[in-house]
Design a protein around this nucleic acid. Structure first.
Lengths: 208, 208
DNA sequence: CGAAAAAGATGATGGCAATCATATTAATAG
DNA sequence: CTATTAATATGATTGCCATCATCTTTTTCG
């Protein structure tokens, strides 16, 4: 090979990285191959040396975005006490910063609806990352793993729906109200659950 | 005027109606003017006699879809006892039918992310309909209107996020699991709220 | 240093889209 | 029945986009 060993890999990674931002900002169809390449400091011609098709880049960029998001969040909460982790995840997800910067935020609410309309292959890639996200979230709920998974699913749904609604509303008072309602609700549900568990245990003890 | 009085209005309505389905199915940018007109049995030329621009049609079609959805739901719950209404709304929203037929479902999870990227005018139209939806939902929560509004916002966010996630997951077991988790969580939350209110009232009585 | 090979650039090509100018059709008033 | 006029159709026009064939540059190995 004539170019240095890592040269192509670096370029490839740069394209994916830039694309992951622009696609989240402008939508899965909101930006063309030529502009995507220009973002990475290249011209459009070399594109097909790196990707089979535009769609393949979308999948790679999405995977990259999700992996990065999840890894960063894991790092952040590792430094916190276990009982503070859930609140941190929810607070950062439902922050004005996240709402106003879709390009560096979660790809699910930004691209999910568009991807749900794509072919099975693309959709499966999304579904796999959604599962990763659920697993990370479920780890923050103590107790029965099945219950934790259910709580994690509902919490993520609320968080994604809240971000979606707040982005539709723009960035004023109403939008902030949405963020607060979502945040409070997810955390109150988490606080309520141990009680429910204790009640269930009590009930079980009574019948025994 | 030479054509019958209602002729143009009928045609206009037919275009909007068909567009409201196709846009929800294929996305705000997923279908062109020519195909949209063909859906209504016309050719592309007459389009600009009816709409200033493609974007104007998107807004009209979206408004139509939301008004229809809300009106239909209001009709359905009017026949039910008040305490059954919330469950009906949640159950139908988080049904496999709704998940699998975005063309006839809520326009928010189908088009929300794309619209959040449009100009202020389009976004404001969306935000107004979102407010209608919140109001309908808030009516189903008894008690303090402010609390009801907050509950309605969180419930809708959970519902939209759940539909989004379930559409990404496709239509298998995992997708069904998402629907159930969303449904249970929203309804358990509603059941729990009166308890919280009683506790607050007790506390207020104590301080008085 | 020169040849080889890979990375990237240039420049079609063909398709599709939105918009608009102009022609045609249909309905009604006189 | 004919002239008028509004509704719709035909057919550009312009621009963008994904894809690909071919050319150029860059790097390293012999």
């Amino acid at each position: 090979m004539r170019y240095s060993k890592e040269h192509k890999a670096e370029t490839h990674a740069r394209i994916v990285k830039k694309a992951s931002v622009r696609l989240r900002e402008r939508g899965a169809h909101g930006i063309g191959v030529a502009d995507l390449m220009k973002e990475a400091g290249l011209t459009h011609g070399g594109f097909y040396a790196h990707f089979d098709s535009r769609e393949a880049l979308v999948v790679e960029a999405f995977d990259y975005a999700m992996d990065r998001s999840i890894a960063r969040r894991r790092q952040q909460i590792a430094e916190l006490a276990p009982e503070e982790r859930l609140a941190h995840l929810v607070d950062t997800y439902l922050s004005p910063q996240h709402r106003d910067n879709p390009g560096h935020g979660c790809a699910m609410p930004a691209l999910g609806a568009e991807i749900a309309r794509e072919g099975p292959k693309t959709r499966r890639a999304f579904a796999a990352k959604l599962d990763d996200l659920i697993n990370m979230m479920a780890e923050q709920y103590p107790g029965d793993p099945e219950v934790a998974r259910k709580q994690a699913i509902a919490a993520l749904a609320t968080m994604m729906g809240t971000i979606l609604m707040s982005r539709i509303a723009g960035s004023g008072d109403v939008s902030d109200e949405f963020l607060k309602a979502g945040r409070d609700t997810v955390l109150e549900r988490a606080a309520a659950q141990p009680t429910a568990k204790r009640a269930a245990a009590k009930k079980a003890a009574k019948t025994a």
